[in-house]
Structures are given as structure tokens and as C-alpha cells.
Design a protein around this nucleic acid. Sequence first.
DNA 1: TAGGACTATAGAAACGTTTACAATGACGTG
DNA 2: CACGTCATTGTAAACGTTTCTATAGTCCTA
Lengths: 365, 365
Amino acid sequence: MTGIKEVAARAGVSVGTASRALSGNGSVAAGTRQRVLTAAQQLNFVRSYNASSLVTGRSRIIGVIVPSVDRWYFAKVVAGIAEELITVGYDLALYNIFGDRDNQDAVLEDFLMRQRLDAVVPVSLELKPEELTRMLSIRRPVVGIGGPMPGVPTIGMDHFAAGSLATAHLLGLGHERIAHVSGGIDPYRDFKLTDQRQAGFENEMKRAGASVRPEWIIASDFTLQDAYNKARSLLAMPERPTAVFAASDEMAIGVILAARDLGLQVPHDLSVVGIDGHELGETFGLTTIQQFPRQQGQQAARKLLQKLAKKTVPFAEGNETGGNDMPTTGESLPPDSLHELLDTKFVVRNSTAVPRSRARDLERQ
Amino acid sequence: MTGIKEVAARAGVSVGTASRALSGNGSVAAGTRQRVLTAAQQLNFVRSYNASSLVTGRSRIIGVIVPSVDRWYFAKVVAGIAEELITVGYDLALYNIFGDRDNQDAVLEDFLMRQRLDAVVPVSLELKPEELTRMLSIRRPVVGIGGPMPGVPTIGMDHFAAGSLATAHLLGLGHERIAHVSGGIDPYRDFKLTDQRQAGFENEMKRAGASVRPEWIIASDFTLQDAYNKARSLLAMPERPTAVFAASDEMAIGVILAARDLGLQVPHDLSVVGIDGHELGETFGLTTIQQFPRQQGQQAARKLLQKLAKKTVPFAEGNETGGNDMPTTGESLPPDSLHELLDTKFVVRNSTAVPRSRARDLERQ
DNA sequence: TAGGACTATAGAAACGTTTACAATGACGTG
DNA sequence: CACGTCATTGTAAACGTTTCTATAGTCCTA
């Protein structure tokens, strides 16, 4: 194993000088640096990250905690973070929680504490206050993705606004009997996003004077399959909605498939809106509110790297500068400069239309 | 920062003893161990992984290299590996190549060399011989997932057998005009799996005396969207196949959707088979050959951990013992004990049936 | 009871870097 | 010309563990 000692020896300098030449810290005469560099190259020297981590206290590893990498959203987020980190030579340590609280606790205890992470990106993690405290106690920068976390900068989208927008779109087309498929069961039970999207829906309905029927609020789990099954039941009822707002594209497509299998025509018999911007939506012509998880990941990573750059690593930040010019879509969330909302894009395709009854009325005129 | 020194002091022992008590290596009196343990707990001690990595030479980090985490197969594989590693306290460093050769090179150079990985899992990586040599030169265990790699143990499925099986199923139903949608374009151009699945198809067709029409071999990219588009062209032709074997479920579903949109009935006008076991397949009633990427990941991880357990880390292994009782589905690959083939499961649902013409014949009898 | 085989412990030397400190010399300024 | 400043370098002390070596004690057996 060829270490920095050998390099120094070959270049005829001390290890200190060699280290300075190699790392770029401290001043080294141009000629000397060159000699060290070529010596290193000739010896095929690679610096031991362990050793330098030990003394510098920074590992160049960033932890990413996700509920489940194999879900569309999380996979994209991880890809975004990875994309950003790879360019600057940081490693990405992935912790997959599987929506399991025990796992989550284990991860928080076992890994975050092992001083080996320079920073952490919790994504869509619903932490209890004491867990949050624990996470912050490692005194490393934390940038979350998903919902806001007290005292932690986060990147996300405006769920309430998205719910409102989707609903307003349907109402605007003339729909009054609108169902909502939410993602609130099992592993995602206490995800705030579910409540917020639903709140946006209900709020908009109320504003328009449309009634929200409890039996038309369907709790699903973000999977196409489950939404399909539940939509079949819903749409088979004697009285059915003319439109469905699903809290995710996958669920929306489940609804579309269920409708098709029941012989209903989308959008004429049933309009469907989703949220996400899932690739599947293109093929199905799904009207949706696109978010950009990959960019959320990138943005979080950039924010983190920026924090890492200024060596000062505060425990928890009261308030941040320079975060106030962000696009705060709608007035749904209190202006919290810690929680950065990324823009979404409303994409109207042909899964939504004027309801059949209304269309007849219009023709008649 | 409370280190092992403080713990030792509080327990009234030397650091050596404290280390032995905490790590479980070497002998420590039961009472002493207990005292050390409680001291550690009281001081909230957490061992510095950097320091111990430095001296032991093992980092407890395993690198996983995937083309793109946000693809179904890779996400599942990563989840499987993560699941296995989390239980034994290993960290997972994720390298997302994005199907980009430059990135791939950068990763190989920058990361594998940084002695910080205890082992590497390349998944579906097509390496040039010199790259393979380089990867093995880090003298750490390597277990691949996907195709076989010379000198490296790998986990995968039998692509040729799957191609044969899918085709035989269609032929068995009476189909003769069968098209194949393969996954051979752009980022996946030189994936061996594409060729093998196609070879299985062609071989089986030949055996049955059915003709393989070049214009019915469609190169796609594993995405639903692209397969949908290409299938629309294919199925709109005056003469069209009665069945399609797609090299992945996502593409198969793209074909089904295209057929539906053209007014064709699946399975009566068109039978479709896929490969994968994608969850979407359930909703579409897709006949498919299931593979289990998550289990492939787990298996690879287990194999790796096992290698890691016996400290001896060979450079490259000529041959392995204990790997010969594996399920070698079909006679498609030379029996190579390094390449472990995991079982697949043929799931017949209702996207395949006797072709309409044949059905009429049968009725007539 | 003497000797050997263990067990439990302390002490100190690694592991491979970075960096604080000190020393040297060159250069510019009053 | 003397002195301060600055750039360059060497030396050695960290960083926080693990593990090797040595020593003292304990127990068993011949």
C-alpha cells in the first residue's frame, strides 16, 4: 500500500509538504507541487479517505433517508441527489426505511450517530420531536425533502395549492360531484402531504359551494393497484362521481383503468386529475400537476453542499437569508423561509373534460 | 466529543480493555465488560467509524453501482441489497451511473479506488475488460447482479430460458405470427440480456418452424411510453402479428395499451407476454415471467457478507464451491458456478389466449 | 508444590493523513 | 544596513480507534 510517505520520499519532500501539495491547502512552490504530483501519479497513489476523514472530521459522505427507494417519487429524488453529488466527489449513503418505524429508529440510532455522515437528507420522513432533536444533535447540516420540519430547511411542493388547483380545474369544467382518492393508508398514514392535498380539495369544494361526500373520499396507498380496486367499487355504485381527483398519478391511472374496465369513457363519463408528473401519465393522457422530484433532490443537494462549503455548521438555524425570493405558490403555507417550495406545472391533457350532463346543456343553448 | 478514552477512564480500565469490551474482540471479564458498557451508555459514547476503519482497514460500506435507480428493476435490486445490509450494520453507498459512460468511468476511478469500500455490487454493468480488471484491482469482494462477468460471481436470471419460455407459451397456444419488442436502444444498447432474451425467442421460433420476421423485431428502450409508440405503428400495419413477446412488463403494457387504443381486444386479437413481474402487470392481467430483483439484491448482499466474513479476500476467484446446486433453468448457459441463476416464475394471466383464427377452427370441430 | 496454560489487563505502537508550530531564507522598506 | 513580512518547508503532534506485546494473576495437573 503506497501512502503519502512514499510519495513524499520520491518527490524529495516532507510528508507535510506532500500533503499540502496534494490537497491544495497551504502554500507550496509551483515546482515542488509539480514534483509531488508526478510522484503521486507514478506511484499510483490514492489518498486514504479514512485517514483524512479522521483528522479533518469530514467524510464526504452524505446520508439520504427514504421510506422506500422503489417508489417513483423517492427513486427520482435519490437520482437527483446522486446526480448532484457525483460531480463534486461526495458519496451518497442510502438508508431505506421501508416505512418501518423500527427500521427508522434503528437507522437514526445506528447510522446518524456514527459520525461518518457529513450531512443528512431525510426525505418524506415524519419524525417525532425527540427524533428530530436526535437527528439535529449530530450537528451536521440537514436539508429535508417533503414536508417542512421545524428548524430544518426543506425542499418541497405546495400540496395544498396542488389540491386546490386540481379541484378548481374540475369545478371550472362544471363538475360538482367530485371524489378524492388520497394516499393515507398504512405506511403513509401520517404523511402530512396527504392531509394537505385533501385540505386543498375540501377547501376549494367549500369555496365553490360543492358538497364533499365522506364516502367519496377514498383512502388508498399511492399504488395503482389499490386505487384501481377501490375505484372499481366506487364507480360501480349506483350514484357515482363525474370526476376524481387522485393524490398521485399512479392512483389516477388506477382510476382511469377501473373506469375503462367498467365501460366508462374517460374523460366524458369520468374526468380524472392526478399529481406528480409520472411518465405513465403521458401515455394515458392524464391531466396532472407535475412536480419535479429529481430537481427537488438536486436542489437539496446543492443547498447542502453550500452549507458544507462554509465550514461553520450551526446546530439549528433560526432563519436563513436569501431564501425569501422563492416562488410561494398560493397562500397556503405560512411564509417560512426554511421551507422552499419548488414550482409545479399544471399539465392539461385529455383525462379531464366538461361533464356529459353539462355538455348536453351547453349543446342545447 | 466523548471518545473511548473517557469511557475507559470512567470505567476505570485502560483504553485497550475498553475497546475489547466494546467491540467484543479479545477476552474481558464479565464484570469489567459490564462496567465499560454502562460507562459508554452513560457518556453516550459512539465509536468513530473513521478511526476504526483506519486501523482495521474495513469501512463497513458496500458500494452499489446501478445504471439508474429510478428504473423499476434497479430500484428493487437496491432495495433488496439495502434490506439485507441494514440488519448487519453495513452502509450502502449508491453510485448512479445514468447510463453514461463518462460517469461510469469517473465512478470507477474516483470511488472504487478510494479504499473506502469493503465490497462492490455492480448491477447490470457492461464493463470493458480493462475496466473489469481495474475494478478487481481494488482487491475487494465483488458480486455482480445481471449478466455474468468473467471471474466475478454474479446473480441473475436465465434470459435465454425466459425468452424461450415466453415464446413457447405463445406457440403452444397456436400463435405463429409473433413479434418481439426488445430493449436494445440507447442506454441499453449493449446489454447482453437483450440479446439473450431475443435469442431465446428466435431459437424457439425456429424450433417450432415459425418464421421470424425482421420487421417484427422492434427495438425499444424498456419504457412503456416508447413501446406504446412503436406498438401503435406495428399494430396499425395491414398485416399484424397475433401475439407479442415483450422483453419487459412495462413494454408489454405499452403494447397492450396501444392495442386497446387501436380497438384491438387483448387477448383475443392480440396476446401479449412480458418479463419481470412488475406490479402493473396485475392490474393489466399480464401474462409474464416473474423475476425477483429484490431477492437478487438480497442474495448478492448475502453472498458478499459471507465473503466479507472470512477475512481472506481473494483477488479473483477461479471457481467457487457450494454454488453448484443452483437452479439452472434450462440448458441455455454453460454451467458456470460463478453465475448463479435465480428461479423465475411463469405467471399466466389473461393477456394471452388462443388466437382468434385458431379459436374458430377449434369451435368448428 | 512447581510448572504450564490460560485469562484479564495495561501500555504502547500502529493506521495514514492533516495541520499547528517553528525554522529558514528572500525580499522590501525605512 | 537592520528589521519586519512573507512564502516555503520540515517536524511532530494530533485524530480515535484496534491490536500486539508483556505482565500479573489464577487455576489445574502432575
